[in-house]
Amino acid sequence: MQDMAVALFVVVFGSILSLIEIPDLLKKKMHRELVAFVVLTVLGMSLALLKAFGWSIPNPSDLLAWVYSPVEGIIKGLLE
């Protein structure tokens, strides 16, 4: 339920933002910024929608925990 609210908010806000920003960026010929903006907005909206429809989003904390898993043992030893 909460995820739906977030997704709705993100989509609405993202659309309004695009409507305002994209013509402005085109007018000012900031092509690099335009590409970055579009990529990020699409990413943001899709993440929110994915989450709302129940897909589990890859968790970067998991990634980092996996990367540093060998060190876990050392730290555990140090903490004793």
Partner: peptide, 9 residues
């Protein structure tokens, strides 16, 4: 746009 990503993540 980054703020939107932040909100979900």
């Amino acid at each position: 746009p980054l703020a939107l990503i932040l909100l979900t993540m």
